[in-house]
């Protein structure tokens, strides 16, 4: 049995339109899965279902052996944290500090430990100077950083990032990714929803959604070898592979090899 198992999941917000259709996949402990798909393909809906914020009409979600339902949802939320697509949806406190603390409060983290983690994670996302500020007064990227810090501080076994870095500058994004890589090496299971193919390359596997269905799910390299998968799901390949795919003659074999090597560097 896998660590996370999603089986035959259907979901509709309104009567006549299914936005998730028969979603089936499983994730092993310690995996890093990138979730890709066009706008409206169902990524955030799937994420919300996985943390029990919405209840699927059919199908089941099992996390670490627990079937997600009203009785288990609070236990499951101790295992799985989610950074929302819009950081404002995660903010309830008066200060940045309150907001980083919020998730930990729900987990009943002892106060002293909580203060330690606030300091540590605020520094990790370079927001230590802003702890007493109102979240509404932050820039877009700063809000995202605070939202990320709040979830990292919960130290759950699984984290879902829903386009959590879309407004970060390239530099701080890379910085953060380095840290997430480290957490991954230490065993964190990661589900990363993103439109950025370069960010998705950090994952071991890619789950591609299209119009509410799983269009493809495989290890990243096998998927990227089949360029039609990307074209047919409104996605783009990394620049290096777009080049590699157009070099068909034998004399370019060495170049192609290096281009693949480039996308494999993590």
């Amino acid at each position: 049995m896998s660590y996370i198992e999603v089986k035959g999941l259907d979901y509709s917000y309104t009567k006549n339109k299914k936005v998730l259709k028969n979603i089936d996949f499983s994730i092993n402990k310690g995996d890093w899965v990138a979730v890709l798909g066009h706008n409206g393909s169902g990524k955030s809906t799937l994420a919300k279902a996985m943390v029990g914020l919405i209840e699927p009409s059919i199908g089941s979600i099992k996390i670490d052996g627990l079937e997600l339902n009203q009785d288990t949802v609070y236990d499951i939320r101790r295992k799985i944290g989610i950074v929302f697509q819009n950081p404002d949806n995660q903010f309830v406190g008066v200060t940045v500090k309150d907001d980083i603390a919020f998730g930990m409060e729900n987990l009943a983290v002892p106060r002293e430990e909580m203060l330690k983690r606030i300091d540590f994670f605020a520094k990790k996302v370079q927001m230590e100077k802003y702890l007493d500020k109102e979240p509404s007064q932050l820039s877009g990227g700063q809000k995202q950083r605070v939202a990320i810090a709040g979830i990292l501080a919960m130290q759950t076994d699984i984290i879902i990032f829903d386009e959590a870095t879309s407004m970060l500058d390239p530099f701080s994004r890379e910085d953060l990714m380095k840290y997430i890589k480290k957490l991954h090496e230490e065993g964190l299971t990661i589900i990363m929803i993103t439109h950025d193919i370069n960010e998705a390359l950090l994952a071991d596997k890619m789950l591609i959604l299209k119009s509410g269905e799983v269009f493809a799910y495989d290890d990243s390299h096998s998927l990227m070898k089949d360029k039609d998968v990307f074209r047919n799901s409104y996605l783009e390949l990394p620049v290096a592979l777009e080049i590699a795919n157009s070099l068909t003659e034998k004399k370019y074999d060495s170049v192609k090899e290096k281009l693949w090597e480039y996308v494999s560097m993590k």
Binding site: F171, S172, P238, V239, A240, I243, V255, K258, E261, Y262
Partner: peptide, 22 residues
């Protein structure tokens, strides 16, 4: 660019990798 927290476009990065390794 690093001074301003920016990065290079992917084309430049990829071609630089080719120059270096080949």
């Amino acid at each position: 660019l690093s001074k301003n927290h920016l990065d290079y476009p992917n084309t430049i990065k990829v071609l630089t990798h080719l120059n270096k390794t080949l």
